[in-house]
Design a binder for these strands. Structure first.
Lengths: 159, 159
DNA sequence: AACAGGTGCATAGGACGCTATGCAACGGGC
DNA sequence: GCCCGTTGCATAGCGTCCTATGCACCTGTT
């Protein structure tokens, strides 16, 4: 009864698969990173910081493309766990500059290896062209969403 | 110094774009669903429940592909918000059967519309073939990750 | 120098995802 | 009927993400 061709099937939606594969990929990465005391999100911050020298929370926020409080809490946890340290910025006393600790630096190679291995696992069986196509399509989706969200969140429509 | 061609650039990783576009898509959907008192995750549960009749937490967990405590808390919040109600299962007193409330049922059409519109926004400019290709690639990624994760989380390797 | 607006960050509060763990109800073997 | 392993949920604890809000510091104007 009630035409089953119209039932709501999540598997038909790209949004569902983006969301689902994202959680899967994060879980896989964390299986490898947990023994190092890291997760996928803070591993990315760590590498950014290790290779970009001391930088502010604002810079890290922009590079990771997350909101400011997200990065603030992440850095707070990472400082608690001895992965990063903050030093006062003499040029602007509102914020600090963050650096990687020696402890974290000693694990960088393993972190990079874990991320690369996770990426390799996720893309196993995909040709280079398919991988590029996947990234290209996701970039377009992200851009589309930005376009669509802008007028919804700031109802100011400039004349 | 230290060859800048090898610096760690997140944008080169499919994992990064999957994660990033996932957060973007969720945020867009929630912009539209918040006025309805819903979010992307519980909207999906609501539609599943509305069209699949009364069902157990276990069924919903399987259909949404999340872990059991995730669904338990989601249903608890949805019950608190008057979206679903639980009735004792006479066949098995360990669990309950969940149904959609009249309040939630009255919003189903708007919910479906919001999800469809979000999907349309996200895929704007993509051809039908590109959309299918995107979904196909993400399904393969999800399958790959399952394959790769299995031996990592259960170190029992059957002879 | 003083004030006003802007900027960088911290905090509160909540949703959603996970792992780990425990309990109560079921069900099969004796 | 009783025991024991299995199953369905609940709970605790945490990480990551968000919005909303407030404060301290900077900076340009006067």
């Amino acid at each position: 009864m009630e035409g089953e061709g119209e039932r709501w099937v999540p598997e038909r939606y790209a949004a569902y698969w983006i969301n689902h594969s994202s959680r899967k990929v994060i879980r896989l990465h964390e299986l490898r990173l947990r023994p190092l005391g890291l997760s996928m999100a803070n591993a990315a911050v760590l590498l950014t910081l290790a290779e970009g020298g001391p930088m502010s929370q604002k810079d890290l926020t922009r590079l990771a493309r997350v909101e400011q409080p997200t990065m603030a809490e992440m850095l707070s946890r990472m400082e608690r766990d001895g992965l990063v340290c903050r030093q006062r910025n003499p040029r602007d006393r509102r914020g600090s500059l963050f650096s990687v600790t020696d402890l974290a630096r000693s694990r960088l190679d393993l972190v990079r290896e874990a991320l690369v291995q996770g990426e390799r696992d996720a893309l196993s069986g995909l040709t280079a062209e398919e991988t590029e196509q996947l990234i290209r399509l996701l970039r377009r989706v992200a851009g589309n969403v930005d376009q669509a969200a802008a007028p919804l969140q700031s109802p100011e429509r400039k004349g």
